[in-house]
Design a protein around this nucleic acid. Structure first.
Lengths: 331, 331
DNA sequence: GTGAAAGCGCTAACAC
DNA sequence: GTGTTAGCGCTTTCAC
């Protein structure tokens, strides 16, 4: 099998009658080459279909022009926004995005970080399950930015769950609810912990009672168990770990003839595609996931250029999207 | 800013008291090095946190261990399955997946193919908008596999729309419908063309009338226009270009007080997340998107190893998922 | 079974 | 402004 032939810098140099370094300069250092020469070189390169070999470039410079984004589950609509934002920001910065799926598995995540490490300029780790210690060690080899996970000393982009949960509680309180139930997700989830902590604090400040049930699987299938527990407890307002669970709960409530929001109000997190067209449309806390992905990628890109000692933590606003699943407390 | 230090093969060689070539062999050619030596080298490498630099490897071998997947829109849930399947297959094959979003834009797609070309071993192009001619040219430089797009001479993985559309038509016919309206998506969409061709042929074979409306934007927002056209035409059965459009149509029908499936039956394509929990749950043609992504990636990987002259076309079965949005024809 | 040396494509000194 | 030269980290002959 003959290897596919691709023009190299020397091919271009020969065809253009100049040295390889001139071709290199024509591409990377336009200022330091005669305008005419440059035009000519570029024309020849174009005609030969030449494109610089990133591997060779990387070898010399140590920079690969590539950033890896690791997410727990690519098909989870929540991460679609993060991926898109990161991809956009990467394209803007002239970087290439490598995507890894960790299958919600810390081991797989560690292995990817290790294997991809030398191949990329940095990492965006979304909802990382790695212990702080391991993250810091990885950060010594590659710039890292975290999305929805805070670790001291690392760049982080997190949603403002304090303000967000306050909005949720205020909304429920203004509808006359005096108690809420939080349907918890995976125990290791950093954002889950923040969501619950925020809700509890906000509820207390409002004089509302907050109770946590679960953990439940943060998917549709987690709904039945959660919904049944809610009914048994006689709750009038529930806040689910995420939209998928919230929708699963509503499906079960419908099945059992319980009116939403007539008898029970339901709130989710994430504002995923579908939270707008489920029935009833879901009240949910929206995060700016695309922004988060983009900011995180930019943070990595910035660290590639200048290794800052104290990487920034960015807090992104959240917004309560009120739809049909919440209503006045039933008395 | 001091560059982050990463152990190289020479560091390992020095620490292990062997030559660099021996370290190299220990990793890539286990058979040709003394067992003891190998153990020792591997231990030293492990301890130094050494991982081979893919860029350097690529420079020599011409293989980067990387495959690029280009999709029109990362946030479209339809492609989430393709991405996941490709990612899984890549991981299995020890390859790294690079993700590109073409923004449904042929120009952006061409640019990505050009820029990424030297950096990857091959491409999986999902729902490519590139003309056949350009695809063939790109295929001379890199192995390519297409998903849901057939181009003679290139490896393709396509859904079995002929069988799928027949299932749809049979289903509607068995419910007593005598005519259907197809709500078309983007005119350039290859799969859209196949869907319509299949429906028309199947309808004809069944003695049903098939009419095509549109094009409509294949998103929720395309729904109102499509739904209004459907009502004006008095259709009893509609098949939408995809689930998002179908759901958009149902939302509009609900708004106008039209019962689904009582007065109008609605069918979608794709079986996206949400088609199960929209109201009513949507009858839709499911494709095996994860499979498609995986098969396409495998096809690329195979071509990297042995350049086959006649790359295969794989047709993946489709399956009609009947839910609540279809019912007996209203007379 | 192992070491020495050449070279992959490119960039970055350093001459001229 | 442009050519020459020396590597970047790794694999791969070719000796030994």
């Amino acid at each position: 099998m003959p290897p596919r032939k691709r023009a190299t810098i020397t091919d271009v140099a020969a065809a253009a009658g100049v040295a390889a370094s001139t071709v290199s300069r024509a591409f990377t250092n336009p200022g330091r080459v005669n305008h005419q020469t440059r035009e000519h070189v570029l024309a020849v390169a174009e005609q030969l279909g030449y494109a610089p070999n990133p591997a060779a470039r990387a070898l010399e410079s140590g920079r690969t022009g590539t950033v890896a984004l690791l997410v727990p589950d690519i098909t989870n609509p929540y991460f679609a926004g993060v991926i898109k934002g990161a991809e956009r920001a990467a394209a803007r910065a002239g970087l290439t995005l490598v995507l890894g799926d960790t299958s919600e598995n810390p081991g797989a995540e560690a292995e990817l970080v290790r294997r991809l490490g030398p191949a990329v300029d940095g990492f965006v780790l979304s909802a990382s399950r790695l212990p702080d210690e391991e993250l810091r060690r990885a950060a010594e080899l590659n710039p890292i930015a975290l999305v929805n996970r805070a670790t001291p000393g690392l760049a982080c982009v997190v949603a403002d769950y304090d303000a967000g949960t306050r909005q949720i509680v205020d909304h429920l309180a203004s509808l006359g609810h005096e108690a809420l139930v939080f349907l918890g997700g995976p125990p290791e989830s950093w954002s889950g912990a923040r969501r619950w902590a925020g809700l509890r604090a906000a509820a207390e400040a409002r004089g509302m009672t907050a109770t946590r049930f679960g953990p439940y699987a943060p998917v549709l299938a987690g709904g039945p168990a959660a919904a049944d527990a809610v009914l048994a407890a006689g709750a009038t307002a529930v806040v689910a770990h995420n939209d998928m669970l919230a929708i699963g709960v509503m499906l079960r409530l419908a099945e059992r003839g319980v009116a939403v929001p007539g008898e029970v109000s339901v709130v989710g997190f994430d504002n995923i595609v579908g939270s707008d067209f489920c029935s009833p449309a879901l009240t949910t806390l929206a995060e700016r996931t695309e922004d988060a992905g983009a900011r995180a990628l930019e943070a990595v890109a910035a660290q590639v250029l200048t290794r800052s000692d104290d990487p920034p933590t960015r807090v992104l606003p959240t917004q309560l999207v009120v739809r049909r699943s919440t209503g006045p407390a039933d008395r």
